[in-house]
Amino acid sequence: MNSSKLTFLILFISQLCFSQSNDNQKFQLGLQSNYFLAGELNATYDISTGIEAKYFLKHTEKFHHFINATFTTDIGTTGANLFVYDIGLGSQYDFLQLFKKPLFFQLNAGLLYWQEYFSTQLIEATISNNTSQLGFKANLGIGYRISNKLNVAVNASQFNTHGTTIGISLHYSF
């Protein structure tokens, strides 16, 4: 683990201590951690991390519609780096109350733009290369609001036809 990853972890944990009650929850800022399960990308990457911003358009009793934007990048890969930017629309559906907090499904889909940088040590030269592509991203999750401020979720995501991940996310509402 390099130092930037460590700072990030410390900051994230201290961040959790700030939960306070707030009903006016239009924004969520979240962190994701994903594990590559299948697809072409799985040959290169093991795990990725992402930051997601959500803006809730409308809250009904059970449905919460949102716009989201995510930035995802790989962790701990040598010889390659992945950057995925995606933006989409989604919905959260509270299907059950558990300890007075909702358990919810979430589904969102959108467009992604992805860039990859490669570097390979060959005889007498290191060859670098990069590619970029547009595609789609879809995400299906099941989550729980552990406090007014904090949501946790387990997600399965599809990055174009090139990668399937499972992961966890934590979202902070404000």
């Binding site: 930037s4 990853k5 700072t7 990030f8 900051l11 994230f12 201290s14 961040q15 700030f18 800022l29 962190l31 991390t49 992402g50 930051i51 930035f71 990048t73 790989d74 962790i75 890969t77 040598t78 010889g79 390659a80 780096n81 992945l82 950057f83 940088y117 490669f118 570097s119 390979t120 040590q121 290191t126 670098s128 990069n130 902070y172 404000f174």
Partner: peptide
């Protein structure tokens, strides 16, 4: 909180660069 949020974002953004180190 916002300072923390910014720090988190910037540390994720700085995880990787456009010239990865070759194996």
């Amino acid at each position: 909180t916002y300072i923390f949020a910014l720090l988190i974002i910037s540390s994720i953004l700085s995880l990787n660069s456009c010239s990865p180190e070759a194996e």
